[in-house]
Computed example of a mutant assay.
Amino acid sequence: MTYDLHGRTQRLELSDQSLRDFEAVVLDASPEGIVLSRSAFYPGGGGQPADQGVLIWQGVETRIAGVRKGDDLQLIPAEGDPVPPVGTVVRGAVADARRSALMRTHSGLHVLCGVVFRDYGCLVTGGNMDEMSARMDFNLPEVPPGFKEAVEDACNAEIAADRRIDVRVLPRTEAFAIPDIIRTATNLVPETVQDVRIVDIVGLDTQADGGTHVASTKQIGHIKVAKVESKGKGFRRLRIQISD
C-alpha cells in the first residue's frame, strides 16, 4: 500500500498541500459517510482537525462537516444534505480559510517545537490546535527566568528567517536514521507504517508528520506565546496564538 492511499481513497493533500479543488468518483455513499476515489480533505490527526467544505454534483451541493478514518476514508455530510449516488462524478472544494489557518497554526507549532527542543532540549508530550491558536506540552522540569519571552522572540526570529518547509516521504529505515526525527516523548508512528512522511523546516526542525503545512515560515505570520501553564511535575503547557 502506498503512503497516500487510505482504503480505496487516494489522499491528494499529502503530496499537494495547496490543493483545494478536485474531481473524484463516488465509490460508496450514505448519510453516515461518502467514500471517494480521491480526496484533498485532510482527515484530521496529530492534533490538526479535519477539513470541511462541499461536494458539488449535478447542480447539487453537499456540505462536508468532517472526515472519519476507518477501513475507508469517509467524508461526513452535513445532517439533512443530499448524498450523491455511487458512480457520480463530484467536484470537491475544501474550505480554504479554515485549511489555510490550520496550516499556518500547524507550521507554527513545528517552529515552537524546534525552538524548545533546540534551546531547552525538551520533547513534546501532547498538543492540539484550532484555527490560529494551539497548545503544546513539553517535558520541561523547570521554567527558566524569561522563558516565555525568550521562546516567543526565538520563534518569531525563525519566522522572519523565512525558512523553507519541505515535505518528503522516506522508507522507514531511512527516516528513522535521521537524528531526533521523533520529537515526541513517545514514538507515535505505528510499526505497520513503512513509508514515513517527513516535514522539514530547513535548518530548524525535521520530524515525522502527516499534517498540512505552509511552504515557508514567513507564511505563518506572528507567534504570540500567550501562556505557560504547569501540567504536573516536570511538564509545561505552552499556549500560542497566530496572527498576521
Rank of each mutant, 00 (worst) to 15 (best):
K69F: 01
G108F: 01
D130K: 14
R118S: 13
L75Y: 00
V86G: 08
D51P: 03
A65D: 14
F22S: 09
Q74N: 06
D28N: 14
F22Q: 11
V111S: 09
D28M: 08
G70Q: 12
A40Y: 00
V116G: 09
Y120P: 04
M103G: 04
E23V: 04
C113V: 14
H110C: 07
C122I: 03
A95R: 14
L112F: 01
G66S: 06
D71V: 10
G47H: 01
D119Q: 11
G44I: 09
R38L: 06
G108H: 00
F22W: 11
V26N: 07
C113F: 06
G53T: 02
V54R: 13
W57D: 09
V94E: 13
R38E: 15
Q52Y: 00
E32R: 13
S107E: 07
G45M: 06
E23Q: 13
E61V: 15
F41V: 08
G33Y: 00
V89G: 06
A65G: 12
D72F: 03
V124G: 08
G114M: 05
V26D: 06
V94N: 10
V94L: 09
A65Q: 13
L102M: 13
F117S: 12
L19E: 10
S100A: 14
P82D: 04
K69Q: 14
R20M: 13
L55Q: 05
P43W: 02
L75V: 00
G92P: 04
L27A: 06
C113K: 12
D71Q: 12
D51I: 08
P49T: 07
A24K: 02
A101K: 11
N128P: 02
G44R: 04
V83M: 12
V90D: 10
